[in-house]
């Protein structure tokens, strides 16, 4: 039986003040947004932190071994520690809210939520992070929630003793494999590249599981099989060759991420990947709007980098607000 942990999480749906002009609204509460919140609170800015969840992608990572100060910490524990630090300060926190649009309104900015709430801000930090990229193969969309999963840490416990496939041999794919080794019966790994692209420490851990894990490198996914639920997957060698059918009940898709920048489309400059373009002070193409973390074009998506960028964005927002007062 697994060791039980108990997490005291934020109150969901805590009220935000509508039509109250906040000095700063931070959208997203991953490492970038949470760090920005601490820096903004210390500058005594009237701040709202608004997000679907607290922790962002950190919550989807079981183990973090490269955030300074901790040799090892689980993603949810690190997120809980971040949150605890934020909650020491008197800022408004609205969890369970998704911001769907951002626009200019007079000298201020207007943000609207999926639930139709309106928030007014004198400055904004977009720290909305990234989400899983779909494979776009036949059967995938139809079988989401029927064996196709984009959240290994959430859904892995549902596949006890089953055969599964992980698509993607980067760090997120390898992390999913490590999680599944403890739970599933047999784990296949498929990637179009010729080998692992994950950190060597993860690859070693997978190698230690022996024959339980079988890799199909330089293979691509043709389609996912099943009507009511996933029954298998068809793959073939890249560049042609015979198709291979693997009988599996679960398909975990870990082939990278796409930025959550929909709210900024047509308002802020985005690069080809859809990431928000920022300068070294986290300024976007619109003065008064800053961005930080994985949603931006800053290279390397890491917790520690996102946190650093969040700090910088808050300090830049503060400098902007001071300049406005003059």
């Amino acid at each position: 039986m697994a060791e039980l942990k108990f997490l005291v999480a934020p109150e969901i749906g805590k009220a935000l003040k509508e039509d109250h002009p906040y000095d700063l609204v931070i959208v997203g509460a991953g490492p970038a947004g949470l760090t920005a919140a601490v820096y903004a609170a210390r500058k005594k800015l009237d701040t709202l932190l608004i997000s679907k969840d607290i922790g962002g992608q950190t919550l989807l990572t079981s183990d973090i071994e490269n955030y300074m100060g901790y040799h090892y910490i689980s993603g949810k524990e690190l997120a809980a520690k971040f949150e605890e630090q934020v909650k020491k300060y008197p800022i408004d926190i609205a969890v369970g809210e998704e911001v769907v649009s951002l626009s200019k309104e007079g000298d201020d900015f207007l943000l609207t939520t999926a639930g139709g709430k309106r928030v007014v801000a004198r400055s904004v930090i977009v720290a909305t992070g990234k989400r899983s990229r779909p494979l776009n193969v036949p059967g995938e969309r139809e079988l989401v929630g029927r064996g196709v999963s984009y959240c290994a840490v959430c859904d892995a416990p549902l596949f006890a003793g089953k055969d599964v496939v992980v698509i993607g041999a980067g760090n997120s794919g390898a992390t999913a494999v490590v999680d599944l080794i403890k739970i599933a019966n047999r784990i296949y790994v498929v990637d179009i590249m010729p080998g692992w692209r994950a950190d060597p420490v993860l690859v070693e851990r997978i190698a230690a599981a022996g024959e339980k894990v079988e890799t199909f490198f330089a293979h691509e996914v043709v389609r996912i099989l099943g009507d009511e639920r996933v029954e298998g997957i068809v793959i073939r060698p890249r560049g042609g060759g015979e198709e291979v059918e693997l009988k599996v009940q679960g398909v975990f898709i870990e082939i990278g991420l796409i930025p959550n920048s929909d709210l900024a489309k047509g308002f802020l400059e985005l690069n080809e990947a859809g990431e928000i373009v920022v300068d070294c002070r986290c300024r976007t193409s619109v003065p008064g709007v800053f961005a930080a973390g994985d949603v931006t074009d800053v290279p390397e998506k890491q917790v520690i980098i996102a946190a650093g960028e969040g700090a910088k964005a808050a300090l830049s927002a503060y400098a902007y607000l001071i300049g406005q007062r003059r």
């Binding site: 942990k5 369970g96 959240c151 416990p157």
Partner: peptide, 14 residues
């Protein structure tokens, strides 16, 4: 739910 699912409490609490 599973106990490792960060989105689940939103559904449960609602």
């Amino acid at each position: 739910v599973t106990l490792t699912c960060p989105y689940c409490p939103m559904a449960v609490q609602l």
